[in-house]
Design a protein around this nucleic acid. Structure first.
Length: 318
DNA sequence: AAATGTGGCAACCGCCTGCTA
DNA sequence: TTAGCAGGCGGTTGCCACATT
């Protein structure tokens, strides 16, 4: 007899607990359907929102004739039924955007999804968890910190295996700068532009708290630009990348390198730059045969690399 | 052919934040 | 000022399809 009341009692106690904790239950769970949505339910939701628009989710299920929680309706609409949603088939550009943004803002999926038209936070999150984080792991990169996994670097082995003569590299400045440093600069420039956009956006339309938040992200960007935590690792540790073929490597071990680069074409614009690569910088790229992509690594010793590159405005008329 | 393992993804849960009365 | 509420968000779960044994 008592056992027949237990489910109801459990729901009651759960609700009471939530209320006692100061949080009202999101909805009355009694009699509400859970699980996969049927085509009929989808149709009801779409028709209702077409007439009344999205919002007022708490009352929407009742008004639309749905036995669902309002949150469930909102989720179904925003993640699946909303017009303009892309499903699957992430492009290489989207992959790169997600990885780059994740390295700056972390698991803020809504912020990342906001910069990918037609993508939802849920889809970006799922795609990251099932695909991109594993891809980074395969490359020897920690998907959480975007740093190379510790204890997996051996620069001397790579230098030996690739017969790279560090001294000749240091003497041949032009060889060093082209093309890998340009790629590095490109990567930094894109990150820099990203941060500027965030700052401008927050200054124009958001409050000071978001500005502060974005400034923190800016600082985070600078910190994350340094792949290696320990300076002492610099000269004897470089990521080991399964499935990858080392293509290019450049290093400097004393003073800084400086030189003029260009004019060259980048992102459809012609640039000429005076570049300065700070002390103990290096970068290299490697080709990942598993997905035909190129992965780039860079290191900066003092966490200030975005200030150590000067980017001139695109040259006109060249 | 059946059992088991694995990956992908839709949906749920519960915490957090901002708005409003 | 504050409590209640709605909605947003990220983490997690569970189902399903496919692969492997």
């Amino acid at each position: 007899m008592l056992s027949s009341y237990l489910p109801t009692l459990a729901i009651f106690l759960e609700n009471e607990k939530n209320i006692a904790m100061g949080r009202a239950p999101c909805c009355d769970k009694n009699g509400l359907k859970k699980g996969a949505w049927t085509a009929e339910e989808d149709q009801k939701l779409i028709q209702y929102i077409q007439v009344h628009g999205p919002g007022k989710w708490t009352n929407l299920p009742k008004n639309a004739g749905l036995q669902r929680c309002g949150k469930s309706c909102r989720l179904r609409w925003t993640n699946y039924l909303r017009p303009g949603i892309k499903r699957g088939g992430f492009s290489t550009e989207e992959d790169e955007t997600i990885i780059q943004l994740h390295s700056v803002v972390g698991n803020r999926w809504s912020a990342i999804a906001a910069r990918l038209p037609g993508r939802t936070d849920n889809e970006v999150k799922n795609y990251w968890n099932t695909n991109l984080s594993k891809r980074l792991s395969r490359r020897g990169i920690d998907p959480v910190t975007h740093n190379p996994h510790p204890n997996s670097f051996d620069l001397s082995a790579i230098l030996n295996s690739t017969k790279v003569n560090l001294l000749s590299l240091l003497l041949g400045l032009q060889t060093l700068i082209n093309p890998e440093i340009i790629k590095l600069a490109n990567s930094l420039l894109l990150s820099h532009t990203e941060t500027q956009e965030l700052l401008l956006h927050s200054q124009n339309s958001q409050g000071p708290e978001l500005l502060l938040q974005n400034l923190e992200q800016n600082q985070l960007l600078h910190n994350q630009s340094s792949i290696f935590q320990d300076n002492n690792q610099l000269h004897n540790q470089v990521p080991e990348i399964p499935h990858c073929t080392l293509q290019n490597i450049s290093c400097s071990s004393s003073q800084s390198m400086q030189g003029n680069v260009g004019p060259y074409l980048m992102n459809g614009q012609i640039f000429q730059e005076n570049m300065m690569v700070p002390l103990q910088n290096y970068s290299f790229s490697a080709f990942d045969a598993s997905d035909n992509s190129t992965v780039q690594f860079l290191n900066n010793n003092n966490n200030q690399n975005s200030q150590n590159f000067s980017f001139d405005t695109p040259l006109s008329g060249i």
